[in-house]
Design a protein around this nucleic acid. Structure first.
Lengths: 215, 215, 215, 215
DNA sequence: CATGAATGAGACTTCATTCAT
DNA sequence: GATGAATGAAGTCTCATTCAT
């Protein structure tokens, strides 16, 4: 499995560590959103967190640790809010609810999503792998939901199509966070409705042959 | 309109400028892909381009200029290769061909696409605006194609759905560049086929009501 | 008025700032004297001050700040040593004492004077204005002294002549600092005596008409 | 003696050298006045002179050569305009005329004077010596004039006082070029008149004892 | 545990000078 | 003789990280 990476801290008191890291993450997200990881200095992070640069380094070892903590914490929150979707008995209506739930989540955590996707490339290799793996786990939730619909015979898809569809709807969610500059005519509800409509039709349609369309 | 930003050069010979910038862009894309804009030094760019740091600065004024040139050149290439799609008489089969053409293009220019989307946020504000505007122009090509299909009555969509659908398929294309790490089971042709199928069904399906699905 | 420009420092301890800037100024004066502002590097300044380049930049923001601090500190010292001359009841004997005091001061601070006058032109505009203004305040001390002598009827001068005379004796002082290469036959006392003699005669003499002399 | 330093040129045609250097000096003076020697680039000098950087270096070897040529040419012009003052039979009235002539000259060549005095410190050692020596020759003109007046018994001065007085009036002239920012209430004629008056009185006065004044 | 002053590697950029054309 | 593209040493400044208090 993909074990959580431990970030070393010279402080012993675990609850203090948690508290300080919380402060640090909150400050860092705002800064990263605003100026990106590279243009944000450790001093600024410390200041935004409400303590000194010296204290910051009591709780991390490198600046990249901060980025890792930020990404990890975002994923954790997303995960915990998506977990209830990971149920036994999926169906189209569950899927639709899941999408609404997920897209709403993205709308609420827009800044965090943008930061995570813009900056995670700056993580050290192993941290990046850890984070990408977490993302796959999230995609897998949708894969399972879709597979259950296929098993239900509510939709017809090959396994590969299921994988693709899961990524597909996942990425459309990111689009809401990333392309707000181009989608400012849409409300989140409109976005959800249209995307859901596309998706359902895309899955349920009576197999128009691509060959036919190409002709 | 959105005029091309002129990057100052202290060299006068226009054809030399073009040649050197070509070298520079080629080197920079590779480096940016590998380490990102911020971790790439100007010296490395110069070296990769095959000339000295002093020469580099004969053709640009700041490091950000390199990024701008890179993004601009990528857009230009994409534009020129997409231009033939911007025709008078669109139809479903033209649309399908366009998608195939576009996704193939992304496959071929994967590195460039990743660099452009990962790093353009580091552009100075006005350069960023210029680049985002160019992107909208590309989305608009697909909007026109879709609108023509609507006019043809080949598909039924509201204008807003057209906008969304254009972004939608545009973003799915980016997905191919960005999520190769997760899609390594798919060939580009599979990707195109599945995406096209989703799309066509999504548009052509007999309007499954979302409300119905939600129930 | 002409408020002192605050030079930003990222260090908080005010007394430390003062101490470090003191070191820095001392080192810089020597270097500027020797090689001028432009030929002196920030690294050399840091080294001469006894700390690292990083530390230097904890106490200033730009190299020009160093020059400003140097000029400001010199003016401050000169001012404080000239202040006692700014008295209520001036007279010729006070004026003579003042000149001796001032020229002695210049002799003792020769290096500083030369640096200040050679390099202040490299200050940013507002800093230059501040410094020139400070110089005018010093000239004004002599103007007041002269005006009091005029009021006393010890000397006869028009207000414009007073202004000119103040600049005149001020500049003669600078001459001692700047033209030592040409005046190495003179001791400071000889210089003071001769200058004072010229000055007193220049003011007290029975108005030889220039027209007469020109004839 | 102080032989003129030859500046090497790879061009043979002497009259061309002279012409090009003329252009170069004219451009350089303006630039040095505006931004100082160090902040002026060789490219700028070439451009202001009306030819390319390559051509500039056909006529000099280093940037400092330009400064030397500038200073030398200024001195030459001043010299040639002051030469007629170097006569056999001096007198007070000749002296007064000489001062007027000299101060007028400074007024007309203000920019050149400022450049020369501000920047000559940046000359290489031997060039600086050459230039300082030229200055001494100019002071010597006034020394001779004064000595002749002493010989005439028009004025009474010790030889040392003569030296000092020559420097004195020389420096007052520089004051007109350098302190215009503080003397903008004065016209050149007022300046000349007041300075001349001070000077004549300073020399002619009936030896007020300094000791007496100090008491 | 908290602080913040000190450090120095390393980044970007400039510009005097050269030399092939 | 003239040109201007190429060079790279050297300069200013930043910032992640350490460590004494």
């Amino acid at each position: 499995m993909n074990k959580k990476r431990e970030i070393e801290s010279s402080v012993k008191d675990e609850s203090l560590i948690e508290k300080r890291r919380e402060q640090m993450i909150r400050g860092a997200v705002t800064l990263f959103k605003e100026k990106g990881f590279h243009r944000t200095t450790t001093r600024e992070i410390a200041k935004a967190a409400g303590f000194s640069i010296g204290t910051l380094y009591e709780y991390i070892r490198t600046k990249e640790d901060v980025l890792y903590l930020v990404c990890d914490s975002i994923y954790d929150e997303v995960h915990s809010r998506l977990d209830r979707l990971d149920i036994e008995k999926g169906s189209i209506s569950v899927l639709v609810a899941a999408i609404e739930h997920y897209y709403t989540l993205i709308d609420e955590m827009q800044d965090e999503f943008v930061v995570m996707y813009q900056e995670s490339k700056s993580l050290p290799k192993d941290a990046l792998n850890y984070v990408l793996n977490k993302e796959l786990q999230m995609v897998a939730i949708f894969e399972r939901l879709l597979t259950q619909c296929v098993d239900n015979e509510e939709i017809q898809m090959t396994p590969k199509e299921v994988v693709m569809a899961a990524h597909h709807l996942f990425v459309q969610g990111q689009m809401w966070a990333f392309r707000r500059w181009a989608l400012d005519d849409f409300t989140i509800q409109e976005f959800i409705d249209i995307q859901t409509k596309f998706l359902l039709q895309g899955m349920a349609g009576e197999n128009i042959s691509i060959q036919e369309a190409k002709s």
